[in-house]
Structures are given as C-alpha cells and as structure tokens.
Amino acid sequence: MTAIVTQSAAETEALGRELGRGLQGGDVVALTGALGSGKTRFVAGVCQALGAVGHFGSPTFTLINEYPAARCTVIHADMYRIADRAQAYDVGLMEYFRPPFVCLIEWAEHVLDLLPPEHYLIAFEHCTDETERRITIRRPDDGAA
C-alpha cells in the first residue's frame, strides 16, 4: 500500500501514467473518492501510458467508454449513477473483467462486492489545500486492506 499527496491535477495525471505503465489485459482498477477528487484525471494518465486512443472524459452519463490501445482495450467505466448490483450487471460491467480489457472503474464504491478478488484499489481524497489530493494505491499483491 502506498499513499501519495499530489500537488496538482497534472501530478495526479502523472501518477496515473506511472501506474498505467505496469498494467496489462485482465487488470481491474477500482477508483474511489468524492466528486472532483481527481479520478478522471488519473484515468487520463493511465490511458496515455497504455497508448489508448480517445477522449478520456467523464463517463458519468455514458457509463462505459471503450478506448482501443496498443496491447489491450481500455474500459473506462463510471458507477456514479449505478445504485446496485443488478444495474451494474445490466450495463455489462463484469464482462470486461478479462483480457484484453484493462478495466478502470470510477465510483467503484458502488460495486466493490462485484470486483474480482485481484484488483487495484485507488482511493482519492480531498485535502485542506484545495489543489492537493491524497491518493492511496493498493495493488493486488498487497493483500487485503
């Protein structure tokens, strides 16, 4: 488990790039945290590192965006509007928990019980300083929290 405080959105994005370089098809990344805490910006960084093509905007309304990449397909999902497991099932979220997909899930707190046991968990928090974000990264091999 690693905790990092970023000083700007650009730093959050850079942290996403760093994580993205180590990801491969089949990986599931759960992102949790309040509105405006940096999740979408972090995802943009991950997508850049994976060489994904697309506009990495918020999928709150579209729910699931798909970006083709060099060695995988990036799934950018957003569970903000998903209230329960039946709805997550209905949008087909779990179908992406396998290669060649790298599945990045914003508002994952709404679907934590549906995630595969091996997943990355990235928690975003606002800090007192309005530009700072505290980001905690738990990797699959870190074991249970």
Partner: peptide
C-alpha cells in the same frame, strides 16, 4: 473542440445533487 472531463450538463446535474 470538446470537453476534456465533465460535460456541461453533467456539471449541472452534479452541482444540483450537491
């Protein structure tokens, strides 16, 4: 041009919820 993060309507909906 297009939005790099939230759509304008999404910002309206999220602010309304707040």
């Amino acid at each position: 041009g297009q939005t790099r993060d939230d759509a304008a309507g999404e910002a309206f909906d999220k602010v309304a919820k707040m």
